[in-house]
Design a protein around this nucleic acid. Sequence first.
RNA 1: GGAUGCAUAGCUCAGUUUGGUUAGAGCAUCUGCCUUACAAGCAGAGGGUCAUAGGUUCGAGUCCUAUUGCAUCCACCA
Length: 956
Amino acid sequence: MDMEKTYQPEKFENGIYQKWEAEGLFRPSGDNSKGSYSIALPPPNVTGSLHMGHAFQQTIMDTLIRYHRMQGFNTLWQCGTDHAGIATQMVVERKLAKEENLTRHDLGREAFIDRIWKWKEQSGGTITKQMRRLGTSVDWSRERFTMDKGLSRAVKEVFVRLYDEDLIYRGKRLVNWDPKLRTAISDLEVENRDVKGYMWYMKYMLADGVKTADGKDYLMIATTRPETMLGDTAVAVNPSDERFKSIVGKELILPLVNRRIPVIADIHADMTTGTGCVKITPAHDFNDYAVGKRNKLPMINILTEDAHIRDEAEVFDHDGLPSDCVSSFIPEAYRGLDRFEARDKIVEDLKALGLLDHIEDHALSQPFGDRGGVPIEPMLTDQWYVRASVLGKPAVEAVKDGRIQFVPAQYANMYYSWMNDLQDWCISRQLWWGHRIPAWYDENGKVYVARSEEECRSKYNLADDFKLTRDPDVLDTWFSSALWTFSTLGWPDNTEELKTFHPTSCLVTGFDIIFFWVARMIMMTMHFMKNEDGTPQVPFKTVYVTGLIRDEEGKKMSKSKGNVLDPLDMIDGIGIDELVGKRTANMMQPQMAEKIAKRTRKQFPEGIASHGTDALRFTLCALASNGRDINWDMKRLDGYRNFCNKIWNASRFVLMNVGSMQLTKPNKADLSLADRFIMSKLSKTIKDVCTYIESYRFDQLANTLYEFIWNEYCDWYVEFTKAILKSNTATTEQKNATAYTLVEVLETIMRLAHPVMPFLTETIWEQTAPMVSKTNAAHTIMVAPFPKESDYEIDEEAETQIAFIKDFATTVRNLRAEMKVGPSVTLTPFMRGASASEKECAEKNFLYIKNLANIEPITFIEKDASLPPCASKPLRKAEVLIPMKDLINKDEEIKRLKGMIAKLEGNIKGGEAKLSNEAFVSKAPAKIIEGARAQLELNKTQLSKVKAQLEQMMSL
RNA sequence: GGAUGCAUAGCUCAGUUUGGUUAGAGCAUCUGCCUUACAAGCAGAGGGUCAUAGGUUCGAGUCCUAUUGCAUCCACCA
């Protein structure tokens, strides 16, 4: 058996994955006897690359999938990618601008979409390659893309059905408009940023010689957006505001435009805020829009699609119909100006007219488009909407009654709070890349909705030559993602896959897309997927919500901060120059590059070492506690890479020592105490592992594996076996039993750890499984049965005895260290006052102790027997003593004993206080009192021994 | 303004649901060891008034109240 001296994952990880994939092992088994288990992978952006969040979530999903697959469930991990409308279109537009100096409009719609498809072909493989490197066992044969044929069919079907049920409608409304991308976006895609701005105070003169109650001939208006005044159609005051009661219904002259606008009374105006007078611009502000509706005000749109001032305003009545009820005039000076240029010019002109009273600094949170990164503009446009409030009701119920469970549970609150106040969802986007809306218009603008133009004509009885024009807009990306769990399984056909794998078992995703995706998936799925009894079917039974992975300082990882860690770099390693290159390439703000380079070189002077996939996955699991954000810690990764190395070397030990033996299944009688001990511990570990996976405690799972493998198997059991395998007294059968157990437990550990660490475990399993006849037809651990608690016997007696042996060895080592005696010096220990069972155990298992502590046989003496000066330490109710000879420093020993006495006395004092407390003795449960008494007694016994020891030492 | 989460060793975090003997892990630190699986290792050690103040209880890191600090989400911002 030839194994490298250190763990070198790069030598085997790739080959193993290729083998698994080639042999079709990721596909469902088709055996439904134990039920099915399925996960739909949240589809990553098709042209994206794998980041830490993906690695984290996919590790968790893969752990769940591999676990259930080994448990014998018919397991499907459905994968695919998302067309990511805005994101992808932007990438290609940027590329086009950079490389060919062209805009999408230069190319035209068809040619541009063609370019995106080409880009998808070219770069779409990046993330799927990276996923393979991570070991994700998705069923690649079922890979889907949100724009492929089947999914497009599902999208059209859903759209048409919802329209026919009046759950989708089209209407002119105020929407969040991104002037850079020139599209509407949903509320969710708006992020509010705190910015420093100004409050401008300006005077609107009263018309017809009217004066306010305090004799002024103007109203003072405060605004943060002076340029919108061009579209003002009223000024509002609060109906109960005494200051302005007399002028309600009177008119003002809108400055610069010289249009007359009314003073209206509306509760929107807050007497305590600003000046008490609010300008009302229904076409450019959400509150004003509502005020306009209430007061039947006209709406004046002054902006173009890219937020420049129009040459002539668009005027609509309060129902949004084109109207000429007020003038559409815009002063020439502002026409064609960008909205911020217009602002400056308007302020300047107002000032010149003496209408600008003053300016104040003002902190405000301003809405920005999360993709385009420019301030969004409320705009009056025609858009398509989903009546989310209707679809939302059953979706709330499903979580309330537990059909869908959030893990951790508190995310359900976040879900409710949003769901209970659902606004209609704007689903149309003025983009080119996406699912085109299946709606057609005739020349009068009448709308027809159908799956195709052909169906449209037959559905609405339209002649073949009746002119129809298709809606140019596409659907929000999240519209197609919302159908993901069922559209990928073949819906609208009632396929076998749907029957077998839907609802899916679990969704693993980040909290940041609960609203974008999770909530909408629940709404859509429950509307379209029904159980046999007609009740709505949920998309998944559990939502496991992960936190965000942040950098070591707790900052979000982002390209612009230059603190992004690529999971692949941690797997394969990367040189410092290459890392700096990656972090500083294509910066939006090139001036940051130098700073980032400097910081990166400081943090990673030698670049990043390779750690292997398994170490990365194990680290991700270990850090995955309870949905909290994770501050990434390179040190943890190093530690778990060392853990992989530990497993590797333990395996090396096993194979070197027993690899050439012909092992046979041992008789129970030939098993050693250590064998029985490790199998008992293993049984308990298996139970814990299952519990933790099923309760989504991947951190506990990792800790349990780490603790058992390193502390029990390697530190103790392997050491015990050395004593037996090298022993002259053990029989061949006994040696076989221990050798067999050594291999069998290792083989089981591999299966136990496989869901988290697929590659290392496969490698070692392939070599160990045949030795204990555990191999299978496919020769892979992937489909080996997951260990069961009942595979091994609990043996409390063995555990108790081993615990004593460990204690004894530890005590001796402790004394050895305190006496500063090197491990090569053989010690001659005494044990004073041992119980009969302790004596028997120590004598019977002396071989183990000798091997662990390097000692001569133990001399047992009576409780009160005296000895020449010794270093000593209490062990339970007895004590272990080692003759000092010249090995020990008397003063040091006295100091140590005094320390022990102080500690014991403290414990005794506490214990006595507790037990003399009447209330405690009368009210605490018997078990607790019992425990306290026993502890007190033990402390007293030990104290007396240590005191005697001190006395002897002092008398020297 | 509304809501949630967090605060435990030098660092990163478990433990709090269900209160119970001396509060754990990894990394870092200190001491001694290259002991034929592993120096990416072995053996041993030090390090915590569990954010603060009250309360409930025989007993509080754990339950309750308040305060402080940090973070996040939602809403609003003339």
